[in-house]
Design a protein around this nucleic acid. Structure first.
Length: 199
DNA sequence: CCAGACGTTGTT
DNA sequence: GTCTGG
DNA sequence: CCAGACGTTGTT
DNA sequence: GTCTGG
């Protein structure tokens, strides 16, 4: 899974990096830790306009959802079952890029856990996402897959990781519904935080 | 057949 | 809206 | 979809 | 076996 990200880059740098304009990012503030369970609005690029960065809210709300919808459960979407889940199957072509320069995951060691920052030397990159857009509601979910490589060592409890895209080619492929191989050659920064698990 | 679910499993 | 558990 | 029903109303 | 209630 993936519930915490990092976006410390300025708008101007994101524009340059992703070769895109910007719309409605006034309320965006770079942040060391972005928490999914707060349902934050974060910068994304959708397949509707690959040269525009806009804010979408983390936590997918399908267009048919009613007031009882619980976004806690649509912060992530398992890539293995996208085509069969009612919440995702009709939007598997609504591709977006979630713009970040790091994300966080916890490693369980004995009965404590260590927080890692994961990324590409603090460079900008993207997570693969799906979005829905209806009325004023613009929301997204982060697509996850089986953890590989170093991610199996770090995220050793759930063995999941977000689908990460690094090159422009990978990002375009995702937006165009083409096969992508999720990245796992991350740089990692351990020990940001350590916590005894409660017993 | 239709009511009820639909999504994932975590942080301070 | 579609799917599915009862 | 699958577990569980599936039949009728009387004779000494 | 088929039908149907849940």
């Amino acid at each position: 899974m993936c519930y915490q990200t990092k976006i410390t880059k300025k708008k101007e740098e994101m524009q340059r990096h992703f070769d895109a304009g910007i719309k409605g990012l006034d309320e965006f503030e770079p942040s060391e830790v972005i928490k999914a369970f707060d349902f934050p609005k974060t910068p994304v690029i959708t397949d509707e306009d690959e040269h525009l960065i806009q804010l979408y809210q983390w936590g997918l709300i399908p267009y048919w959802a009613d007031a009882s919808w619980n976004r806690n459960y649509t912060l992530n979407a398992r890539i293995e079952t996208l085509d069969s889940k009612p919440s995702f199957k009709n939007i598997t072509a609504n591709r977006c890029l979630i713009l970040i320069n790091g994300f966080y995951e916890w490693q369980h060691v004995g009965n404590s856990k260590i927080k890692y920052e994961i990324g590409f030397n603090n460079e900008l990159f993207a997570l693969a996402g799906l979005y829905d857009h209806w009325a004023d509601t613009k929301t997204y979910t982060v697509v996850t897959t089986e953890a590989k490589g170093v991610m199996r060592e770090i995220h050793n409890s759930k063995l999941r990781m977000p689908v990460a895209l690094y090159t422009q080619h990978e990002m375009r492929a995702w937006l165009h519904n083409q096969e992508v191989v999720p990245r796992y050659d991350f740089t990692t920064n351990p020990g940001l935080y350590q916590q005894q698990t409660l017993f």
